[in-house]
Simulated scan of single mutants.
Amino acid sequence: MDEKTLCITLGDPCGLGPELVVRYFADPREGKYLLIGPVAALERELERAGSPSFFTKINDPDELDGLPGGVYIFEPPELSRLGFPAGCQTVEGGLAAGVSLEKAVELLRNGTVHGLTTCPLNKAMLQQAGFEFPGHTEFLAERLGVGREGVCMHLCGENEDGSNALRVSLVTTHPPLSEVPRLVTRERIRHCLNLTADFLKRLGKSGTIGVCGLNPHAGESGRIGHEDQDTVEPAVVEARRAGIDCEGPIPADTLFHFAAAGRHHAVLAMYHDQGLAPLKLLHFGKAVNVTLGLPYPRTSPDHGTGYDLCGTGTACVHSFAKAVELARKMMA
């Protein structure tokens, strides 16, 4: 059987993606990889770093069949004549990210590649380029036929000493805060708990999933909103009856303290900033974003395009490296 291939999209080539890829592959890596994006962006970073080329250009991803392990790049034809200035927010950068993602989805579907790591994109530029999605998670969920309600955004933290780190799943991803209460349903909570529990098993982890309350103090028995009593608590009870080790709703300001101390092996947060603010406080630049519920492994670094860091040599490659490593582990 041919070696499994990990696809890596360069994201917005005006951002940090090309630099991260160049720095990561400066050391020889085992495995087979297909990069998708503009070759010129990688060549720009190779020249800046004074590094030799590490990839082989292919004109058709079908050429991958039978090729040995190594790093290959496919440049979608519509990107070949565009410019991608480093550190600049451009619609062309959004177009490159969207076109590269579309190609990656096609290759996942036809079995040419077997997993995906995505470099950061600019959501506003993606949308201005004609791709009406809030971000990678929603884009991939719809294009891969799962639907936005079928997936769950999850971030894995890491501590350098190997001690317990936060792992956070989100019931909602990128809606306006005013829409969150409507989107937090029993069905959605149970689905995210199922996906999170399954993912912990794949990592070889076991333990309780702590579930955040939606309201301050988890609603104080209905005195501060009714959602925690009427929606979150019943969903947790139903999940426990189905065999999932979870507890809640727990006030978020308390739950994250105990989760960081190791009492909970993962946290289910109700909305984006509730979950990711504490995670990034502890693990900024070292966490990995995983889309749970897709038919293929998908990971990404936990940060954005970082236009202001382009060319400074100060960007950290750690999160990208961990995203690649996790994707390959999930492909095995």
Rank of each mutant, 00 (worst) to 15 (best):
S178V: 15
L203F: 01
L183H: 06
T172W: 00
L200S: 05
L195M: 09
P181L: 11
P181Q: 09
G222R: 05
R202W: 01
D228R: 06
A218Q: 00
A218H: 03
R182V: 07
H174G: 04
N215A: 11
P234C: 10
E233Y: 04
T196M: 04
L200H: 08
A235P: 03
R190D: 12
T173L: 13
E187D: 12
T196R: 03
E187P: 10
V211Y: 04
C192Q: 06
L203Y: 04
R223E: 14
L203I: 05
L170I: 05
D230I: 06
Q229P: 00
I209K: 03
T173P: 01
I209W: 03
C192W: 00
V232W: 08
T185L: 13
A197C: 07
S221E: 14
E220Q: 07
H174M: 11
V237P: 00
G225L: 09
G213A: 08
P175V: 00
A235W: 03
L200C: 09
T231C: 15
E220P: 07
F199P: 08
L203A: 05
A197M: 00
S178Q: 12
P216D: 10
H217W: 04
T173S: 12
R188M: 12
P175S: 03
G207E: 12
T208K: 14
T208I: 13
G225T: 00
R186F: 02
E227A: 10
I209N: 01
E187I: 05
K205I: 12
R190W: 00
T172I: 03
K205R: 14
I189E: 08
L193C: 09
C192A: 14
N215P: 15
K201H: 11
S178K: 13
S178M: 09
E187N: 07
R182W: 08
A218R: 05
H174P: 11
R223L: 15
A197D: 15
D230W: 11
V232L: 10
L193G: 02
T196L: 03
T185W: 06
G225E: 03
R186S: 13
V232F: 04
G225S: 07
R202G: 09
G207M: 07
A235V: 05
R223D: 12
E227I: 12
R188F: 10
A235G: 02
T208M: 14
G219Y: 04
C192K: 02
E220Y: 02
Q229T: 10
V232K: 09
L214Q: 01
P181R: 06
Q229C: 11
P216R: 03
E227C: 07
V237D: 10
V237W: 06
T208P: 03
D230P: 01
K205Y: 12
V184W: 01
L200Y: 05
F199I: 08
F199L: 06
T208E: 14
C212M: 08
N215Y: 04
V236D: 06
L200M: 15
S221A: 13
K205D: 12
S221F: 12
H217L: 06
C192R: 01
